[in-house]
């Protein structure tokens, strides 16, 4: 089986790659596109470290085939900041010390951006359930949730 050619958009830029059918989007992002910000913590959709936004929805890139990226619009952690200007979610994660080792952080930031794009004023409970698929073993989630709520407030202009 020869490789399949895929044309897609990653972080606003047109992108092309060759993939074998079984390769996940995460494999493609990390090994072919050298976008290693998306992490593999489990490879089974249970940890959320590989979260990316595909056509407006946050998904685990380990549960998407590379070939399914054809014609899609994909945002990874590398595309969240606008050049040197951090996204408010990134800034609030730093201000609230919402990361320790930082391994789950890219996935959490991507998932949080997807939440706030959809629901600018989540309750703490909504934020906790939305992010339940993003495991963090370091923080106990306290500072993460505070960062999410504060980012939401800032983005609302509250």
């Amino acid at each position: 089986m020869s490789k399949i050619h895929v044309t897609t958009t990653i972080n606003g830029e047109p992108a092309e790659f060759l993939t074998e059918p079984q390769m996940s989007l995460l494999d493609i992002l990390r090994d072919e596109m050298h976008l290693t910000g998306s992490k593999e913590g489990c490879g089974s959709g249970d940890c959320g470290a590989c979260s990316v936004i595909m056509d407006g929805r946050v998904v685990c890139s380990c549960l998407v085939l590379g070939v399914e990226a054809e014609g899609k619009d994909i945002t990874t952690i590398e595309g969240i900041a606008n050049g040197e200007d951090l996204h408010p979610v990134q800034r609030k994660f730093l201000e609230h010390a919402a990361l320790q080792c930082g391994f789950c952080t890219p996935g959490l930031i991507v998932a949080t951006k997807a939440l706030l794009d959809r629901n600018p004023d989540p309750t703490e409970t909504e934020a906790r359930y939305w992010l339940a698929g993003n495991l963090c073993r370091c923080t106990g989630y306290d500072k993460i949730i505070r960062a999410v709520m504060d980012a939401a407030a800032e983005m609302r202009g509250a």
């Binding site: 990390r30 976008l35 290693t36 910000g37 998306s38 992490k39 593999e40 990874t76 952690i77 590398e78 969240i80 900041a81 951090l86 990134q90 994660f93 730093l94 990361l99 930082g102 391994f103 952080t105 890219p106 930031i109």
Partner: peptide, 15 residues
Amino acid sequence: DGVDKVTGRAVFGAD
């Protein structure tokens, strides 16, 4: 090392 870790630049073992 914060900015590296919120932007995906930080290089972990598998990176």
